[in-house]
């Protein structure tokens, strides 16, 4: 292990890690919004939109992110929509993640028995009050484990960003290997930085899960 090499290129990785984290989180926020929207459409069975959402979910879940990125990066300019690598990466993550998030939220919503809403209505609550006070808190507790798994999955998927020439962690590692043949050092730093990003996220997920699931239901 060449420590001199590592300390020399550490700042480069650090910069790339911030980029990975920034784009990853932005993509996850957008994926969450897309997911909420799609889950609401399916939960309330809104006609027409429900069909579109179903098709989107199937396409999104059954094609690799790499191909989705290629479509956005090389395909969309052909119809006049030009994107820079960064927004392309974020859009790809939102497109892929949206469907996974939608399914996580939907399973949470559907786990709440409809008679719980009826009870809320019988107490005089409006639809939005029933949703806010009764359904969403219970649905959230059920959705959290799947949601956190998706967050981790999406952060790991950022490693294909390098394919659209984003200078993320993967790109940096491949670059250094190509230039200096320091494969061991480059890959060790790559793994190290992914762990630095993901281990805290995992830990946060475990805490959230315990809080919502157990404290929320009173045990």
């Amino acid at each position: 292990m060449n420590w001199e090499f590592i300390s020399k290129y550490l700042p480069l990785y650090e910069k790339a890690a911030w980029l990975t984290l920034k784009l990853g989180l932005l993509g996850i926020v957008l994926a969450t919004l897309v997911g909420l929207l799609c889950a609401a459409v399916r939960y309330y069975r809104i006609p027409v939109l429900e069909g579109i959402v179903r098709i989107y979910i199937e396409i999104s879940r059954n094609t690799p992110l790499l191909i989705q990125l290629f479509f956005i990066y090389y395909g969309l300019p052909k119809i006049g929509i030009r994107t820079d690598p960064a927004s392309c990466g974020v859009a790809g993550l939102a497109f892929l993640g949206g469907s996974y998030m939608a399914e996580a939220f939907r399973s949470g919503l559907e786990s709440v028995d409809p008679i719980q809403s009826e009870t809320a209505y019988a107490l005089g609550m409006s639809r939005s009050q029933a949703l806010r006070f009764i359904i969403l808190p219970q649905a959230a507790a059920v959705s959290v484990p799947a949601y956190m798994a998706n967050v981790i999955f999406l952060l790991k998927e950022t490693s294909v960003f390098s394919a659209v020439s984003l200078m993320d962690l993967m790109f940096t590692a491949k670059d250094l290997i190509g230039l200096y043949y320091k494969t061991t050092e480059s890959l060790a730093m790559l793994v190290g930085f992914y762990l630095i990003i993901l281990l805290p996220v995992s830990a946060l997920g475990n805490v959230l899960e315990r809080r919502l699931r157990y404290a929320g239901f009173g045990a």
């Binding site: 008679i115 719980q116 005089g124 009764i134 009173g218």
Partner: peptide, 27 residues
């Protein structure tokens, strides 16, 4: 019109007191 169901339908994520208070306070 108050209604009580066969399957109780308390809200599982709330304490007994909050189950009772939620509607009078919020509605």
């Amino acid at each position: 019109i108050g209604m009580v169901f066969q399957s109780y339908e308390l809200f599982p994520h709330m304490s007994v007191l909050n189950n009772i208070l939620i509607a009078p306070v919020q509605v």
